[in-house]
Design a binder for these strands. Structure first.
Lengths: 198, 198
DNA sequence: CCGCTACTATGACAGCGGTCATAGAGGGTG
DNA sequence: CACCCTCTATGACCGCTGTCATAGTAGCGG
């Protein structure tokens, strides 16, 4: 996994997200992040004077924006966009990863929530913001598919909650079963929400 | 939170589950567990010669059995048992806790999965077993309500995945919104799965 | 060359973590 | 009393972690 984003700073944030999603926040050391990013250790205190908390927060923030961008990209790639198809695509990103590279990682936002929700207020807020970003992107996508405004938000929350939970279960079981199940079970419900009166 | 289960051993397992669900596995120390359980520190190596990993595994196992028992209890308490009502009750356990005692804790099994899935194989297996126990209890409950056999398993997985994810989101946002949303959105879908041909 | 800024390089420190070693109580049984 | 088994009590060890302090290098404008 040769990390080669542009600047050292970006690489460290990216590496932090990668390591966090694999081992959790507490088990991820700063020296480890720097090494993984092939960045000098001395740069840590230069780019992240706020210490580990700042680095973690930026990693979570990055993950939230990344997830939101993915939604838009999925949307553009779908030949016939429906809510169920979007959800299937979101799920497929995870089944693909798990089937090819193994069950090594989960969602970094989930990891940050589990590890820091009670101990670090700013990180909890970062996770909240990440979920909000992500949910907003999904809700907008649903609206664009004809889902009524007042239904888009709740359904987006349902999609993300189910996905996050299924990721957890799949990782524990080392089996994508939970992921494929939620996709199959939720698909019809989601598709039924599009307004066909137009 | 005066812990007063029967033996010191049981108390330590229980305390471990409590602390893990709040701070995560890595951030929970053994000395801390003993102190929280009002158990002598020297008992740690006596009751858990397998070290922290054993203690964590037992805590996860305990949580899985507890969750399964709760399902049976919810079932017995429901006046008119339907899948949607059971799910609403499972969700309500969490909204109640969050509204009364705050967003201090999540699911210990989720925490163990996030923190140990990659680093400790035995803990990952314990988490998998916990989910299996829990899912089995829910599936049996659904079957008892008239849900066809082949639908009970997938729906149970959907319920638990959605619940776990909603717990995560709710904790990050410090708002039970995600929990109430998944309950409301999934209720009709679940109730529609009961076989009414009898 | 000076001075300034951005970045890097190390080493040290203090704290905490899990684990081990060793020894001590308590209470039954022979 | 001697013996043993269960449980408890400490203290020490070692490794790791986040953070700080200090010093060094690179490049650039003047």
């Amino acid at each position: 996994m040769a990390v080669s984003g542009r600047g050292p700073r970006e690489r460290m944030v990216f590496s932090a997200a990668q390591l966090i999603r694999r081992d959790g926040v507490a088990a991820t050391g700063m020296r480890e992040v720097a090494a993984h990013a092939r960045a000098p250790r001395g740069s840590l205190q230069h780019y992240f004077p706020g210490g580990k908390e700042q680095l973690v927060n930026e990693a979570v923030d990055w993950a939230g924006r990344y997830a939101a961008k993915r939604v838009a990209r999925f949307l553009a790639a779908l030949p016939e966009p429906t809510p169920g198809a979007l959800f299937a695509e979101m799920v497929r990103q995870w089944t693909d990863e798990y089937e090819t590279t193994g069950f090594g990682g989960g969602c970094p936002v989930a990891a940050a929530t589990v590890d820091c929700a009670e101990s670090a207020a700013s990180t909890r807020e970062a996770a909240s913001a990440a979920f909000t970003h992500w949910t907003g992107a999904v809700a907008r996508a649903l609206s664009g598919m004809g889902v009524p405004e007042e239904r888009a938000g709740p359904l987006a929350t349902l999609m993300i909650s189910s996905l996050e939970g299924a990721i957890l279960v799949a990782r524990a079981e080392q089996d994508v079963r939970a992921l494929t199940t939620v996709s199959r079970e939720l698909g019809p419900l989601l598709d039924a929400a599009v307004d066909r009166t137009g």
